[in-house]
Design a protein around this nucleic acid. Structure first.
Lengths: 258, 258
DNA sequence: TGTACATCAGTGAACGCGCGTTCACTGATGTAC
DNA sequence: TGTACATCAGTGAACGCGCGTTCACTGATGTAC
C-alpha cells in the first residue's frame, strides 16, 4: 500500500502535498474565501492550469483541506486521550487532555479551525467524504466517556434533569449507529458538551473573549471540567464541605439510576 | 431627535436603509465574503460609485451590517427577558426565554448570525463601535442572573468546583467594569455558559448536528437548562429522589459561600 | 417673494486588478513487445 | 536491449467575468440675504 511504484507516482504525491501545503499557508494568511488556485500555482512556480492535473476545481482543493483539518484536530484529540490513558490518568484527566488538545490545535491553526468550525464557505457544500473525519473529536470524547462508564465513574443526570424523550430517542438511535455502550442520557449530555466545548474554543479564537477573559487557559481548563461533570463524570469529592458530596456523590449513591 | 429636517435628510435616511436592506439580502443569498458594493448598487438601480455617498467603503458597510446584527440578536434576547419577566416567569424561565430568542433569531437569520459569530471576515477588523452591541446578549444573561441572585435563587458553585484564582480575578474586574452585583464565581460560570450557548447555536446553524441531533428544539431547551444550573440557577427539586436535592439545594445549604 | 450661491446625490467612464476554467500544445516518463 | 506507442505533467494563451475605487461632471435641493 505504501510501496512507491515509480517516479511519476512519487512526483504526483509530492506535488499534491506541496499544493495543499501552499494552500494551507494562504489560508492562514488570508482566510478561506481568499484562497485562489491562481495564487497557489503562482507561489509554486507553476502555471494555474497545471493545478487541474491534481484537483478538478477549487472546491475539490477546499474539500481536501477540510478533510485534512478535521483529521488533524481529530488526531490531536485521539493522541491526547491515548497519552493520558497510558500515563494512568483517570477519565476526567483524559477528558481534559482531549479538550486541551482541541484548543491547542485551534490556537496553532486558527484559519484551519475557522474553515471547519466557522461559517460555511459560501457556495461550497461539504461532500460526504468529510463526514467521517468530522466525527473524530466527538468519537474521542465518547471513547473517554465509555471508559469512564465501564469503570463505574459515570453517573447519569439526576432524574429531575433528564433530557426529554425525543432527545433520548435521538441518543438511543445514535448509540445503535455507533455501536457504543453508554446510557442514552449520558450520550445526550455528551453531545451537548461536545457542542459547548467548541463554543468555548470558537469564542476564544474568534475574539469574543477580548476584554472579557484574560486568563484563557485557566478559564478553559475549568470550563471543560464542569462540562465533564455535566456529562456525568464524577466530580472530585471535597470531604470538608457538604457541597463536595454533590453531583458525583449523588450519582454514586443511586446505583439504580443506570 | 426624530424630527425630520427636510427632503434631503429624509431621502438620505431612506437610501441608507435601502442599501443596508439590499446588502442583507445578498448576505443571506451568498454570504459575507461575496457581498459586493457593485451588486448592491446594481440591484438598487444605482451606479456603483453612488454608494460612496453613503459608505466610505466596503468595510464601512460591513460594519453597519455587523452592528445591526448584534443589535437585532441583542434586542431579541432583551425582549424575551422582558416578556418572560412581565408574565411572571421565574429567573430560570427568563434564562430559557433569552436563549431561545437567540436560537430563533439565528435560525431566521443564519447568514447574519454567521457574520457575527462565525469566522471573522478576512481582511476586516471590527472597529470599536461594534463592542457595545456585541455585548448585549451577554448583558441580558447577566441581568437575568442578577435578578435571580437578588431573589436568592442563585447558588455559587460548590467549593470543590470553584474556578481558579486567575479566573475569579477576571470576573471580579469585569464586575467592577459593568457595575453589576453578582458573586465573581457566578459571573465566571456565566461567561462560560454564554460561550457554550453559542456553541450550541453555532453547531446547529453550521450543520454539525446533521445526522446527530434531530429533535433540535428539545435538545436545545434541555441543554440551556443545564447551562443555567451550571451557572448557579437552582434546579427544580425532585422530592421523590435523592438526586433532586442536588446542586441548588447544596448551595442553599451553604449560606457562607458568597 | 426672488435671486445668487453652496451643498450634495447621483452619473458614467475609466483604472487596474485578480479570478476560475478551457484548450490545443509540447516533451518527458512509463509500458508492451 | 531497443523500438513504438500511450500516458500524463506542465505550458501559455485566451475567454469572460466581477470587483473596489477615483474623478470630473450635471442637476436638483437647500440656504442666506
Amino acid at each position: 500500500m505504501n510501496v512507491i511504484r515509480g517516479a511519476r507516482e512519487r512526483a504526483r504525491r509530492e506535488v499534491t502535498q506541496a499544493i495543499k501545503d501552499e494552500a494551507r499557508r494562504q489560508l492562514a494568511a488570508e482566510g478561506a474565501a481568499r484562497l485562489s488556485l491562481r495564487s497557489v500555482a503562482r507561489e509554486l512556480g507553476m502555471v494555474s492550469s497545471a493545478l487541474y492535473r491534481y484537483f478538478a476545481n477549487r472546491d475539490e482543493l477546499l474539500t481536501a483541506l477540510i478533510v485534512d483539518a478535521y483529521d488533524a484536530v481529530g488526531e490531536a484529540a485521539e493522541r491526547a486521550v491515548a497519552a493520558a490513558t497510558e500515563t494512568g490518568a483517570d477519565p476526567l484527566g483524559a477528558w481534559q487532555a482531549a479538550c486541551r488538545a482541541v484548543r491547542d490545535w485551534a490556537l496553532a491553526h486558527p484559519h484551519e479551525y475557522a474553515l471547519i468550525y466557522g461559517s460555511p464557505v459560501p457556495g461550497y457544500t461539504a461532500p460526504p467524504e468529510t463526514v467521517v473525519p468530522a466525527s473524530r473529536v466527538g468519537l474521542a470524547l465518547i471513547g473517554v466517556a465509555e471508559r469512564a462508564h465501564a469503570a463505574g465513574e459515570l453517573a447519569p443526570p439526576p432524574e429531575s434533569q433528564l433530557p426529554p424523550p425525543d432527545v433520548r430517542d435521538d441518543a438511543w438511535r445514535l448509540l445503535q449507529q455507533l455501536d457504543r455502550d453508554l446510557p442514552p442520557t449520558v450520550l445526550a449530555e455528551l453531545v451537548a458538551s461536545w457542542a459547548q466545548l467548541f463554543g468555548l474554543v470558537s469564542f476564544e479564537i474568534f475574539g469574543q473573549f477580548n476584554r472579557v477573559v484574560d486568563a484563557r487557559a485557566e478559564f478553559f481548563d475549568h470550563a471543560v471540567l464542569r462540562l465533564a461533570y455535566q456529562a456525568g463524570f464524577h466530580a472530585p469529592a471535597a470531604p470538608d464541605t457538604p457541597e463536595g458530596a454533590e453531583a458525583g456523590e449523588a450519582g454514586r449513591a443511586a446505583p439504580a439510576a443506570d
